[in-house]
């Protein structure tokens, strides 16, 4: 599945929810299931400081693809990270650098990636794209 198909799949999954609280229940469950970054790995250089919640991002490059794990102190933020990982993990740097994450607004979560939300998510996506660009220019 490519980046666009993965996003369309998520949009479809979210269509079953007819209530905000159901949607968030699902996101919270995603957040709970997501593997944590260990405390020792929550270092300054992995931290993306939001005004409210914080995000830690650990990314690496293997066999031409980007992989990453991320964590947050807020569970809803973490659930959304889960969705972003599903879409972006294992993709080539080029696709990540140019990715249009249209699914976020389609499922009604755009507020979480708005610059004013200050939960670290937008910073996380930016940093991820930056990492991807680094790998493109290195290769």
């Amino acid at each position: 599945m490519n980046l666009i198909e993965k996003q369309e799949e998520i949009i479809q999954e979210f269509e079953v929810f007819d209530d905000w609280m159901e949607k968030y229940e699902y996101i919270i469950d995603l957040g709970k299931d997501l593997p944590k970054i260990t405390e020792t790995n929550k270092t300054e250089d992995r931290l993306i400081e939001g005004c409210q919640s914080r995000v830690w991002l650990d990314s690496n490059f293997r066999d031409g693809k980007m992989h990453f794990t991320a964590d947050s102190d807020a569970i809803i933020t973490k659930g959304i990270i889960g969705l972003l990982i599903r879409v972006l993990d294992g993709e080539e740097p080029k696709s990540i650098a140019t990715a249009d994450l249209f699914f976020i607004s389609k499922i009604g979560l755009q507020e979480h990636l708005s610059p004013t939300r200050a939960n670290g998510l937008l910073g996380m996506v930016k940093r991820l794209k930056l990492e991807a660009i680094k790998h493109i220019s290195a290769s």
Binding site: M21, Y24, I28, Q52, S53, D73, A74, I75, I76, N119
Partner: peptide, 10 residues
């Protein structure tokens, strides 16, 4: 154990 941001969002 719960972040205020999560409570506020809900």
């Amino acid at each position: 154990g719960i972040h205020p941001f999560d409570i506020g969002t809900l």
